[in-house]
Design a binder for these strands. Structure first.
Lengths: 171, 171
DNA sequence: ATCAATGCAAACCTTTTGCACGCGT
DNA sequence: ACGCGTGCAAAAGGTTTGCATTGAT
């Protein structure tokens, strides 16, 4: 199982520019993501590449369904199972972020920053996000209830982004 | 449709103590909830009563499934559809709160306070909650991205409550 | 008597799983 | 050649809906 490779990161790693150059090309970032997978011993299949590429291009929260739809153009026989399997893999490798939305459905976006803890403004129309400055766990000087052991927290601000506000008023 | 009754609240409303007195009786609160439904023109069926009662007794986040299970004792032929229909109704009337948990499943709890905005510490084991003092939207002096129109936010702190910490270490 | 509430069954949607085959390494 | 990755099909959850019946008012 490739998952079990050690997580020490290769300090001497350069970005190689090769194949698959896209319109909205994201210079080295893409390779950084793919290399990370390779380091971990995962195979770089065309589908896996494309999922990373699309998520990078989109740069917003997107559902498995929408993602599959985009991928179908390239891989007509692709189905949900593979998409989910890859999304789970990418999430475990911390290359993407998942958020469960109000309707109970999950959406995924490329990791904004693999190192820093952060929260998002999220546009409920298009899924675009923007970073929130600060974290409530620091800002609120809260003391946990006696004996309560904090594991995680969730903080998200939902609304319409500038673009989607426009289109809404232009209606 | 009773839903369409006006939402002006009756200023002169007293709690009547009648039928259905329970072990963990929650004095007037229960009637307050039921009266609210009656005011809105909804029928007070046995099932609806019981759902409110159970949610009041539990006083924690509980899944539709767990709720159904508890109700089955009293109403063996009760099924999910009715539970969900009632949960939706209660949510619309703001008598209960819903939260989508990490696994994508919804859980419900009796409304803590119909008037005040609040956030929760939530025990991921038993669902018990405790109020968080303050709201990140106030604490963080954040300015929304230009043109971003904030609609809602979500802030929840997950972990193990004192009780569930104990049982875990007692293992 | 009326109309909301319920039971039943079935549909729906998202996500997951088993298994045999295909493909990246 | 090895073993992960994939397609297919099917199952699994959780939630919703249509319709006829029951029941609260």
């Amino acid at each position: 199982m490739p998952h079990e490779h050690d997580h020490s990161h290769d300090p001497c790693h350069h970005d190689h520019s090769h194949d698959h150059i896209h319109t909205h090309s994201v210079p080295n970032t893409k390779d950084k993501f793919l290399d990370r997978l390779k380091e971990q011993g995962f195979k770089l299949t065309g589908k896996r590449r494309s999922i990373v590429e699309i998520l990078l291009e989109e740069d917003r929260y997107i559902s498995a369904k929408d993602l599959l739809e985009r991928l179908k153009a390239q891989f007509p026989r692709l189905s949900f199972d593979t998409v989910y399997r890859n999304l789970h893999l990418l999430k475990e490798e911390r290359l993407i972020e998942e958020s469960v939305f109000g309707d109970g459905g999950s959406k995924f976006r490329i990791a904004c920053d693999t190192n820093h803890h952060h929260h998002h403004f999220i546009c409920t129309v298009c899924g675009k996000t923007q970073l929130v400055a600060g974290c409530p766990m620091d800002a609120l000087q809260l003391e946990a209830p006696t004996g309560f052991h904090i594991e995680t927290h969730r903080f998200e601000i939902f609304g319409h982004c500038a673009n989607c506000c426009q289109s809404a008023s232009a209606r």
